[in-house]
Design a protein around this nucleic acid. Structure first.
Lengths: 225, 225
DNA sequence: TCCTTATCCATACGTTGTACGATTATGTAC
DNA sequence: GTACATAATCGTACAACGTATGGATAAGGA
């Protein structure tokens, strides 16, 4: 009989191998490395060198693990706030860029994060303060602040979702769109066809960064009235 | 031995019980009724009174079923285009509202639809033509049309995602936010705290429709420069 | 007629989430 | 100390899942 170090009862004080935090950290690593489908309770337990059932003492089920991950990502968001050193519109953009960057750090989690309302709303009210501050400085009424912030957040969410999905498939937008449009009957989408041919392959080259900046500018311009 | 009507070989001509379309339609029904997790190959087969393995003759795997559903939803999107009977900004809004409505018709699929790039891009180029037309009428340059359309679509996606998630949990935003904010240390989010108290419970009452309209107006104003 | 291909079914395998109960240590009350 | 509730872990087991494999039967072209 070999003592492989595994013991079956409660570990001695200070020797606990598990905690909610440790589990979530390991889970985040798995998801970041190998995608959300790679996260199974068994694999998670294995990386923690623990029996799968031990996880259930710290988290009630797998859904709670996923929710915990969303929470983790959101808690890790720290939006910088340059305050009054810059105009309000720049202040708003800085926060928006940081928000996007935070989501982008864990692309495999984008879906989970963006759709997990409970995790989101717990932290989001504090996280979004820089948005509110900037919009307040812009002179908006309370209700307008609220609505403008929501609009901006929705844009970032939609953008991030697209960015995460597309990145996940290593998808080439420009050439794909070109061939797609060329395959269309010309009268199906005349305006699109004209735009694409006017732009040509080079002009179509799209990158996410400039797409994001463009959207941001449009939104800020709209908020300014 | 009872003949229960089941026969094990190829069905006679005209008696086929399956087709890609029939499978997807049944799948959509399951998802709409009981959510995405309720969609299993076994249940799908059962509702079609067919052996689970029969599905695999028409679709290679479950992922293809999900992709097919996304495709179905997108194909069902028909954006009305009032054309020149209204100003370009109204034309844009009409298309945007229809797009949102289309997504809202299958809230349990929102995630799948919005993250399935391949299904999306195949149909989306045609579907979005009304957007391009309206933006063209606004006098934008080709590149600007492209960017503005993307921004608008991203906003709708983000908005729909939030709407679908929240609806799925029958979540009450206003009272929840109030209690949440009241539980905060007052200096954690001063601007938010001030806004919320200024608005009060009534002013906070939020409904998705007006939130969407507000975002739409902001975006249109931004596009107009 | 023969042969390929299309459609459906039966069986079976590996993987998943997790219910249940046993085992051992901790912390508190006496 | 002794007793006991509670906490942390492990072992076993099960139902449900996606789907690989292969067989049955009919369709349709050669």
């Amino acid at each position: 009989m070999v003592d492989d170090g595994k013991r079956s009862g409660r570990p001695r004080a200070g020797e606990e191998r598990l905690s909610r935090e440790a589990i979530l950290t390991a889970a985040l690593r798995i998801v970041d490395d190998d995608g959300i489908d790679a996260l199974t309770m068994r694999r998670l337990a294995a990386t923690l060198k623990v029996n799968p059932m031990s996880l259930y003492h710290h988290l009630p089920n797998k859904a709670a693990v996923l929710a915990g991950l969303a929470e983790l990502v959101f808690a890790g968001l720290e939006l910088p706030d340059p305050g009054e050193t810059v105009p309000w519109d720049e202040q708003l953009k800085v926060a928006a860029r940081a928000y996007r960057d935070g989501l982008r750090r864990h692309p495999n989690l984008a879906l989970q994060v963006l759709s997990d309302t409970s995790a989101v709303s717990d932290v989001v009210v504090v996280t979004m303060e820089p948005f509110y501050r900037a919009l307040d400085r812009a002179g908006l009424a309370p209700r307008e602040i609220f609505e403008a912030a929501n609009t901006l957040i929705d844009f970032i969410h939609g953008f991030s979702l697209g960015e995460a999905s597309v990145r996940a498939e290593t998808f080439e937008l420009a050439p794909d769109l070109l061939t797609r449009v060329r395959g269309l009957p010309a009268d199906k989408a005349p305006t699109l066809t004209r735009i694409v041919t006017e732009l040509g392959a080079d002009g179509l080259a799209y990158d996410f960064d400039s797409g994001f900046e463009s959207g941001l500018s449009t939104l800020v311009a709209g908020i300014r009235r």
